[in-house]
C-alpha cells in the first residue's frame, strides 16, 4: 500500500516536472530532457509486464495531454516499457533471480549506465521520429536524438546522485 502511494507520488511529481519545466528546455533548439521515463526505469524488476505497460501508457498519455501531442509520448514510453525486460536481462552482469529495483546501488555502475542509455536512446529516437515525421533531414534528426539522449541521461544521473545522498544521510 505504502509502495503504491510512493509510486503515485513519483508519477505526479515527474509529470509536473516534465510538463512545467523540462518540456520547455530547448538548448539551441535541441536537447530536451525527458526525465519522466525515470519512473518506468526504476520500477521493480519483478513487476508484471502487463501492469508495467499500463503504467507506462498512463504516464505517457498524461504528458501528452499537457503537451498537446496525444499519442506521441504514450507510443514511445509503451515501447520502452515493453523492451525493458529483455534489456534488463541482457545488461545485468550476474544472474539475478530475486526481484530488485534497477538502480546504481543494485546493478553496479556500468550495467546501470548501459541499461538507462539503451532505454533512453530508444525513447528519444521514437519521440523525435514521430515529431518530425520525415527522414528527409537525417543529420538534424540524428543530432536531436543524440542531444536529447545525452541531456536525459545527465538528468537521470543527477536524480540518482540526489537520492543516494539522501539515503546515506539517513543511515548516519
Amino acid at each position: 500500500m505504502l509502495q503504491l502511494f510512493e509510486r503515485i507520488g513519483w508519477f505526479v511529481g515527474l509529470v509536473l516536472l516534465q510538463v512545467l519545466v523540462l518540456s520547455h528546455v530547448h538548448i539551441y533548439g535541441y536537447a530536451t530532457p525527458f526525465l519522466y521515463i525515470f519512473f518506468i526505469l526504476i520500477l521493480n524488476s519483478g513487476i508484471d509486464r502487463n501492469i508495467l505497460l499500463l503504467w507506462a501508457f498512463a504516464i505517457g498519455l498524461c504528458v501528452d495531454i499537457f503537451c498537446n501531442t496525444p499519442g506521441m509520448h504514450a507510443a514511445a514510453i509503451t515501447l520502452v516499457a515493453f523492451l525493458r525486460e529483455p534489456i534488463l536481462k541482457g545488461v545485468a552482469m550476474k544472474e539475478m533471480e530475486e526481484e530488485f529495483e534497477p538502480r546504481i546501488s543494485t546493478m553496479g555502475f556500468s550495467s546501470y549506465l548501459k541499461y538507462t542509455f539503451l532505454c533512453t536512446l530508444i525513447f528519444c529516437s521514437v519521440i523525435e521520429v514521430i515529431d518530425t515525421f520525415s527522414f528527409s533531414d537525417l543529420k538534424e534528426l540524428g543530432l536531436k536524438i543524440i542531444t536529447d539522449t545525452l541531456i536525459t541521461m545527465i538528468c537521470i544521473f543527477c536524480v540518482e546522485a540526489i537520492l543516494r545522498r539522501n539515503k546515506s544521510e539517513e543511515r548516519f
Binding site: N50, F57, G60, G71
Partner: peptide
C-alpha cells in the same frame, strides 16, 4: 497483445 493494443491506441490518437 496488450503492447500492440496500447500502441494502436497511441497511434490512433496521434493521427
Amino acid at each position: 497483445l496488450l503492447f500492440i493494443f496500447l500502441e494502436v491506441i497511441s497511434f490512433v490518437l496521434l493521427f
